[in-house]
Design a protein around this nucleic acid. Structure first.
Lengths: 143, 143
DNA sequence: TGGTAATAGTTATCTATGGTAATTATATTT
DNA sequence: AAATATAATTACCATAGATAACTATTACCA
């Protein structure tokens, strides 16, 4: 499969740019969207939850959450452990989630135009498999 | 295809990190590799050639090329137009290309383990199609 | 042919995103 | 109770890319 990475990475910049443009209407970027998405789909979460979900260091998530707090899209809610910062979507955050979710889904559909359903499925199924292979390979290295 | 972008983008960080680790043995990163790759496969090139190939602004390419010159992997060769800076691989650059090409191809193969050949082909074929759809969509926006 | 346009590259500056190391506050373990 | 672990933060640094302004050279054309 020589050239696969090239194809994969070539698409990356176009896609992330398009998504960021789409989200910029809400003062968001894809990295901020990830946080909103995670909270919406997993309920109130701590920074460590989000950090481990996306394999991103805690300080990075601290910054994302601070930004979303400024934008009043998330808020802290009390948890039992006073070390933790449990965050939840605000009403505004939820509203913006709905709007963005719709636009992103539309984009996902429009981008697949002309691609056969079974090819879509193959690609959908292949991506996480590649990621798993990468992960296992990493694991082996540290043995 | 809701969730496709998520799957696609989730893979990105693992992949680029793995590639950068692989390339760091040669003091390279994927962005530098792109320049070497382009020259190797298209012959002596100007900064504008490379810039337009990867849809990256000229100053970005200036920096990449300067870095590769420092590493003595590329050198400038005379061209007819004295505005242009035509760059070519050095012997060292070519040697490193060969080594990296081999390692990257190995990685491309190992990452596809357990993925059926026809699924690989479907994914390989789908990525540029998505990119084309994205591009056309962008085009429509500016009408 | 002389003046204006366009082109290639560079420099300076800015933004976005992420990482590491060290620190504080709180919980857990022993 | 003391030591350790965990959650979050702060300060600092790196990478990658963009824009704007500039220089040098070439192309155009009237």
């Amino acid at each position: 499969m020589e050239g696969f990475f090239q194809r994969y990475l070539s698409l990356y910049r176009s896609l992330i740019t398009t998504l960021n443009e789409l989200l910029s209407a809400y003062e968001l970027s894809y990295s901020l969207w990830q946080v909103i998405y995670h909270i919406k789909n997993n309920g109130p979460s701590t920074l460590v939850d989000i950090s481990s979900r996306y394999n991103v260091e805690k300080p990075t998530i601290t910054r994302r959450v601070h930004r979303l707090e400024e934008l009043q899209m998330v808020k802290q809610i009390p948890g039992k452990d006073r070390r933790e910062k449990v965050i939840q979507l605000t009403e505004l955050g939820d509203k913006i989630y709905q709007e963005c979710r719709k636009k992103i889904t539309d984009l996902e559909n429009s981008v697949m135009e002309g691609v056969a359903k079974d090819e879509q499925k193959a690609a959908f199924h292949t991506l996480p498999k590649i990621q798993e292979n990468l992960f296992n390979r990493e694991g082996n290295k540290s043995e």
